[in-house]
Design a protein around this nucleic acid. Structure first.
Lengths: 168, 168
DNA sequence: TATTGTTATACTCTATAACTATA
DNA sequence: TATAGTTATAGAGTATAACAATA
């Protein structure tokens, strides 16, 4: 519609323009997001990034990332699962789970045991060390969760969990 | 609680062998998430993945991904911004924005104009073609947003946007 | 000396395809 | 044939570091 790019936009007019000369190191806080503010996905994405960063930082001392934590938790709660079952449950590609488990197995947190019934599959278990470690991870994860609560509020966090309860 | 490999098959129960006699729900549905259900980050992550997949699919006909859409929208609403300003505003690494803009510029949606004031920086603008295209992208993005509404409910979506309004 | 855009590297994550060994 | 696990590759996305041109 508006042809030349030199023209300040008139159609989605949010706020003051930087003009056509480029605005390098200016204060970046008066930049409008326009349609993005109406998209749930944008806010959710930014929030998810914040959450993961806090999780990684809070569990930094034990070097456990969100995906690793989810794998350990599911194995801990369902010992004997196959890799396929874990991958499906968590929505992880089975090819990716291989590397995740390689790492966790090297760290002696998880062990793969070849099944007698179906020798194609591995039964996954936490090691004794893994059980102990997971207890500590859960404590740190709970601490992280309190950060989330402090960030958005106790009631809002509860509402969020309710709204997204369908996304297991 | 630690089990031997013998338990493996009772857990993941391959569909083939179950036949159609019993066990209507195959394996994956009775796997507990344990502590994960109490973590906002887990639900948020799963939701965000769902949203992005729907966005990518809904805007598949125009081959625009969420990050590309956010860049185009911000440039469209704030013509003349520098790359640094866009990167900061959207939380994208400036090194990554270079490649994103390379792609968008090749598709004639965006143009970089070297600034006269600060010859280190580029003023970013949509092309005329870019303006037209963005209008269509926004229409498709609105369609995507209706999918989100249908998925979680109108009221829940509104609550979500309110709760996460701080994550701009 | 500091900043903008750029190039490069590395690691994470997603998405496939193909291979093996079993079934 | 089909499936579980593995290997490999390609593409996004993230995080750095270094460099040239410019401030």
């Amino acid at each position: 519609m508006t042809a030349t790019a030199d023209r300040a936009d008139t159609r989605h007019a949010p706020r003051k323009r930087a003009g056509n000369g480029a605005a390098p190191g200016n204060g970046a806080d008066d930049i409008g997001l326009d349609a993005l503010v109406g998209h749930a996905g944008y806010a959710v994405r930014r929030f998810q990034i914040w959450i993961f960063q806090d999780f990684i930082k809070t569990l930094g001392e034990v070097d456990i990332r969100p995906t690793q934590y989810s794998v350990l938790t599911v194995i801990g709660a369902n010992p004997g699962l196959s890799q396929m079952a874990v991958a499906k449950r968590l929505g992880i590609e089975r090819a990716r789970l291989v590397h995740l488990l390689d790492s966790l197995e090297q760290r002696k947190l998880v062990k793969r045991i070849r099944s007698k019934q179906d020798r194609r599959s591995h039964a996954l278990h936490l090691t004794a060390q893994g059980e102990t470690a997971l207890t500590k991870f859960k404590r740190l994860a709970a601490e992280h969760e309190r950060h989330v609560e402090a960030k958005i509020g106790k009631e809002n966090r509860a509402q969020l969990l309710r709204i997204l309860s369908g996304f297991t």
